[in-house]
Design a protein around this nucleic acid. Structure first.
Lengths: 230, 230
DNA sequence: AAATATTTGTCCGTATGTATC
DNA sequence: TGATACATACGGACAAATATT
């Protein structure tokens, strides 16, 4: 019976506590299901439900014949649930995600500008050049675009931010809500402007280019308050 | 055997497809486990594993004797996994979360300012007044603080943003990483400044107050580029 | 109000495929 | 190659919670 909460949730927490107590790190194996079941005094079925739940969250990976392995931090599993909520009538969730992404990028661009190394900028340059000739291949543009934006903010070394943006891009690639194909030339120019500003170490130009990048018909201009404050 | 992927994942997708096909909305009930098991040609255990996975992701809620109900959009379940990754050596994830929250709030504050209604501001005023006398009760301050910030951005009607911030606050309440108790008076002043600016319809004051709010010893000042651009 | 049916919750046992040694 | 350990998957059974009549 559900004394306080469901059994498999309690087991979930007990496993979590066990991870903490034993100081298990990514790559380590959890005790076998049978052992856990015996230790917690529950059936293997309940342990399985708990572990399967952890698996879809990207916390562990269970492989037959080997064991259940702890994985490094990730939030990619967000995609899983996003797909579920992608039912007709709730498609606004995708637009809201894009809105969050736009705000995040514009908000973090300052830190990113100063964190980017030469190699990063060089990589961005290569990506833009490849974008220019990516007209033909289906889906290639999305991948390059994603690479571009993730590279921008990777130097910040914020795993939460990385994972979040990655998840949002995953949604983007699948739903192609932005349909950039029609104005791909436009998009090339926008990315080109960003890279050029970076190569010139021009922060102001970088800010302008980023705001320009997000000012397409699909996106509302987020506005800036620098003309109001001071 | 795992032909392509694990069976419960396939069932997960089949259930998803079923939701789409039948156009199930939040509040609707999924078919019983036995029916699903029969329909998909798998054991009931596998169906349960799939459903439990959906449950921890906040997609459904299974209640004994009633059925499995579809839930409205949410991202609160992120908390579940964040807690797991909170193992020693990875505690930076929490700080990264706070950093993301700070950027989100500062980035969205403009939209929030213009979206806030009178009732919202009134509610904020009440919360601040209650914060002032929340010294004694343990944990009360955190709840009020959370209420304050969520109220700020709720008028934006962005479920993704709401859910995200809610999850981050959940982490905050649990870990109390910011330990505001020592300088609670300081915190009262910061919230007070925000509300006063809102009550006076003073956008610039609002911006200053928000930046002031996030400028404590714990938080790095995110900086602003208005003095550089233009 | 009470009996009955439905549905999830939990357990047990067993067989099989697979990775590791 | 074989043996072992482990996750995978199945089926049946009963309890507990809820809904229905």
């Amino acid at each position: 019976m559900a004394a306080d909460q469901k059994l498999y949730v309690q087991v979930l927490r007990q496993i979590h506590q066990l991870i903490l107590d034993r100081g298990l790190k990514p790559g380590d194996l959890l005790p076998p299901e049978q052992v856990l079941a015996a230790e917690f005094g529950v059936s293997r079925n309940v342990v399985r439900e708990a572990i399967k739940s952890m698996e879809v969250m990207g916390i562990v990976r269970a492989v037959a014949g080997r064991g259940t392995e702890l994985l490094p931090f990730s939030m990619e599993y967000i995609l899983q649930s996003m797909l579920f909520f992608q039912v007709p009538g709730n498609e606004s969730a995708v637009r809201q995600m894009f809105d969050v992404r736009r705000h995040l990028e514009l908000s973090y661009m300052r830190d990113a500008f100063y964190a980017l190394e030469k190699e990063d900028i060089q990589h961005l340059r290569e990506v833009v050049d490849r974008i220019r000739v990516s007209y033909e291949q289906e889906g290639l543009f999305s991948e390059l675009d994603r690479d571009f934006h993730l590279t921008l903010f990777r130097p910040l070394k914020n795993a939460v931010l990385d994972s979040l943006m990655n998840a949002i891009w995953e949604v983007d690639v699948r739903f192609q809500l932005e349909e950039k194909r029609p104005h791909l030339g436009d998009s090339v120019a926008k990315h080109e402007a960003v890279v050029q500003a970076l190569e010139a170490h021009d922060f102001i130009g970088f800010v302008k280019a980023m705001e320009y990048h997000f000012s397409s018909g699909k996106y509302r201009n987020p506005g800036s308050y620098e003309e109001e404050v001071q």
